[in-house]
Amino acid sequence: MFVRSAEIADEKFLWAMLYEAAYARAQGIDSPDDLRDIPGLGHFVEGWGAANDLGVIGGFDGVPLGAAWLRSLTSEDPGYGYVDDDTPELAIGVAPEGRGTGLGTALMSALLDAAREKYDAVSLSVRLENPARKLYQRLGFVDVDGSDHTNRAGTTSVTMILRFR
């Protein structure tokens, strides 16, 4: 297994991982390119490499299969896990062939270690039935009171936050 820092050149791969993170295929979205026009999603990747962007890419045998990254979003253009302008939102996606291998845990651990030095907290949005929710809880994330919301597909998500200080 390898985990490395995400670079500007990884933007296309981040789109593919956002597609996985958003369970886009199950919602009838045909390709990662179609995510660009969905409010609340495209800003997680568009123009990757800004000053506050932080991310990691990981996989096996030199093949990238997952990514975890943070973006600082604002109240004017928030994501689903928005808390405030000072708390970056986390996204993580792992290709189907990388799931269940420990890659997601390795990506989260590496990203959170780096984020701890730069931010006071990080947030994310997760579907209540997503098995990754247990990982987030093990890592110290807690639900933000009153943050649950149901999307157009009828699934309920909650915002979670991990405070470093």
Score class of each variant (00 low, 15 high):
Asp148Ser: 15
Asp84Phe: 11
Arg152Ala: 15
Gly40Arg: 04
Trp69Gly: 04
Arg71Cys: 04
Ala21Asn: 02
Leu162Met: 07
Ile161Phe: 07
Glu97Phe: 06
Asp30Gly: 10
Pro64Ala: 13
Ile161Met: 08
Glu20Arg: 00
Ala22Asn: 01
Gly55Tyr: 04
Gly55Val: 06
Val122Trp: 04
Leu112His: 00
Tyr136Ser: 05
Glu20Ala: 05
Val158Ile: 13
Trp69Leu: 06
Leu111Glu: 02
Tyr82Leu: 12
Ser147Asn: 07
Lys134Ala: 15
Glu11Phe: 07
Gly40Cys: 10
Arg116Gln: 05
Gly59Asn: 07
Tyr82Gly: 10
Ala50Tyr: 13
Val3Gln: 03
Ser123Leu: 09
Asp84Cys: 14
Gly47Ala: 14
Gly81Ile: 08
Arg133Glu: 11
Ile29Leu: 03
Leu112Asn: 00
Thr150Tyr: 08
Val45Thr: 08
Lys134Asn: 12
Tyr80Asp: 12
Gly100Pro: 02
Gly81Lys: 02
Leu139Ala: 10
Gly93Ser: 07
Gly49Ala: 12
Leu90Gly: 04
His149Glu: 14
Glu129Tyr: 10
Ala153Lys: 09
Thr87Trp: 11
Ile8Pro: 01
Ala50Gly: 15
Ala106Glu: 08
Pro39Trp: 11
Tyr19Ile: 03
Gly98Glu: 03
Ala21Phe: 03
Leu124Cys: 11
Ala114Ile: 03
Ala22Ile: 03
Leu54Pro: 00
Met160His: 01
Arg25Asn: 05
Leu107Trp: 04
His149Cys: 12
Phe141Arg: 00
Arg138Thr: 08
Arg71Ile: 08
Val83Cys: 12
Leu111Ile: 02
Trp69Glu: 05
Thr159Trp: 01
Asp34Cys: 09
Ser125Ile: 05
Ala24Cys: 06
Ile161Leu: 10
Ala9Thr: 14
Asp85Cys: 15
Tyr82Val: 13
His149Gln: 14
Asp86Ser: 15
Thr101Leu: 10
Glu129Ser: 13
Arg36Gly: 12
Thr87Ala: 13
Leu54Arg: 02
Asp120Pro: 06
Arg163Glu: 11
Arg99Ile: 12
Glu7Ala: 12
Ala21Tyr: 00
Glu76Trp: 11
Thr159Gly: 07
Ala91Glu: 10
Pro78Leu: 12
Ser123Asp: 09
Leu90Ser: 07
Asp77Phe: 13
Leu111Pro: 00
Arg116Ile: 00
Val94Glu: 01
Tyr23Phe: 07
Gly58Met: 04
Trp15Arg: 01
Ile92Leu: 14
Ala51Ser: 15
Phe60Asn: 09
Asp148Tyr: 09
Phe2Ser: 11
Ala95Met: 15
Tyr19Glu: 02
Ala68Asn: 02
Ala110Asn: 04
Ser125Gly: 14
Ala95Phe: 08
His43Val: 12
Pro78Ile: 10
Ser72Gly: 14
Thr156His: 03
Glu20His: 01
Glu97Leu: 14
Ser109Gly: 10
Ala121Phe: 06
Asp77Gly: 10
Pro88Ala: 14
Asp86Glu: 15
Lys118Ala: 09
Arg165His: 13
Ala68Val: 05
Ala115Trp: 00
Met160Phe: 05
Leu135Pro: 00
His43Met: 15
Gln27Met: 09
Ala68Asp: 00
Leu103Glu: 02
Val56Gly: 02
Leu70Pro: 01
Pro32Phe: 02
Ser72Ala: 14
Gly100Phe: 06
Arg116His: 01
Gly28Phe: 03
